[in-house]
């Protein structure tokens, strides 16, 4: 007996919830005095460690591991910053002011300005406000994160059909969640999907900013972070 499609989609969201990684802490070096370089170094180090976790997380998305290695790489190279940003956004939802890069690393506008990150702070805050207005729940967050990864517009995709299928399954899972948990808001799935352009635009601005920081050569960056940055030229 096959499970009904409804149950299968509910199971996808439950699996995505189970696949959620453990919290990662920024752990800024207490022996180094505060400076813009220290902040940027801490953020790049945090992103590098989160990337390792994101790669492991992607393998838990149903269908991802069946894609060719090349397509798995292309999807991650295309969406990593969107995935990182969604994490920051979700963690920041309960806070009125400040971006929660990690539970031990919350930056407000003043701290962001001192590190040359005020513009990015404002852009990311706009994204936070968009999701806060929607009262995004955890199920929606994990499904949107998987949808950001399953991006058929990513460059160098070999098997577009498989990625389209992955996208359809995730979208159905989101729709199913909405009709069972938010049935009084029939537009909700659409509203959530319509946040993805702003997410992509913001991710692109953050990547550009870190490209510029990299070009200045004052901030040490780990290899995986550099590799992913280089993939987005």
């Amino acid at each position: 007996i096959h499970p009904s499609p409804k149950k299968a989609y509910t199971k996808i969201v439950s699996n995505l919830l189970l696949a959620e990684p453990e919290k990662i802490y920024a752990m800024p070096d207490p022996t180094v005095p505060d400076s813009d370089i220290k902040t940027l170094t801490t953020l790049c180090d945090l992103a590098d460690r989160e990337l390792v976790v994101i790669i492991g997380w992607a393998k838990h998305i149903p269908g991802f591991s069946s894609l060719s290695l090349g397509d798995q790489m292309s999807l991650l190279q295309g969406a990593w910053m969107e995935i990182l940003l969604l994490g920051v956004v979700f963690r920041s939802l309960p806070y009125q002011e400040g971006l929660v890069y990690a539970e031990d690393y919350i930056m407000d506008e003043v701290q962001s300005r001192m590190s040359g990150l005020r513009d990015l702070y404002l852009c990311i805050l706009q994204l936070v406000q968009r999701y806060r207005k929607l009262h995004m729940d955890k199920e929606e967050y994990v499904t949107l994160k998987a949808l950001a990864l399953a991006n058929s517009d990513a460059v160098h995709i070999e098997d577009i059909q498989s990625i389209q299928k992955l996208q359809d399954v995730l979208q159905e899972a989101l729709q199913e969640h909405e009709s069972s948990q938010h049935w009084e808001e029939p537009q909700r799935a659409g509203q959530l999907l319509l946040t993805l352009p702003l997410l992509r635009q913001t991710a692109s601005r953050v990547v550009q900013h870190f490209h510029a920081i990299r070009a200045q050569g004052r901030v040490p960056m780990h290899k995986l972070f550099l590799e992913m940055l280089e993939a987005k030229v």
């Binding site: 393998k59 290695l69 798995q72 790489m73 190279q77 995986l224 590799e227």
Partner: peptide, 19 residues
Amino acid sequence: TERHKILHRLLQEGSPSDI
């Protein structure tokens, strides 16, 4: 692949806890 060897390696490895 050569340019993206860490990503390649991490995808080929088992669970993230092995890393």
